[in-house]
């Protein structure tokens, strides 16, 4: 099985790259691969614990009816597989006050990302545009 390291930069709900990256993670996990995620800059907000579902006033539906999954809920599912290791860039977290995250994510630094890349089958960098 392969080890795939991915660097992400986009915050949640701003770019399709976030969804695509999570689709790639999901496919990799289903195929039995190990996935390492380095969340850099705005991507550290993907795992924030206080994300909540919301209603849709246009449709008049409640939060429960919408069952709107947050990025952290998707990621919690991925982390539960124990095939995903998730590091949030510590300095990026500090300057955003984004330290309250879901269980399983951990704090790290670019040096951790570099170490991962040296032992991975492949590295995919997905920058922000």
């Amino acid at each position: 099985m392969a080890t795939i390291t991915i660097a992400l930069m986009d915050p949640p709900y701003e770019a399709e790259t976030t969804t695509t990256a999570m689709r790639i993670m999901d496919a990799a996990v289903r195929k039995g691969h190990q996935v390492n995620i380095f969340a850099y800059e705005g991507a550290v907000n993907l795992t924030m614990k206080d994300q909540e579902a919301h209603p849709n006033p246009v449709k008049g539906t409640t939060a429960e009816e919408e069952d709107h999954p947050s990025s952290s809920r998707f990621i919690a599912g991925l982390l539960a597989t124990e095939q995903v290791d998730w590091i949030n860039c510590g300095l990026c977290v500090d300057e955003r006050g984004a330290g309250n995250w879901i269980d399983g994510a951990r704090r790290g630094a670019p040096a951790d990302f570099f170490a991962w890349t040296q032992e991975s089958t492949n590295t995919l960098v997905i920058g922000t545009k």
Binding site: M1, A2, I4, D26, K31, T121
Partner: peptide, 10 residues
């Protein structure tokens, strides 16, 4: 994306 992952895993 499953196929994309296959390519990444090479």
């Amino acid at each position: 994306v499953d196929f994309l992952v296959d390519l990444l895993a090479e």
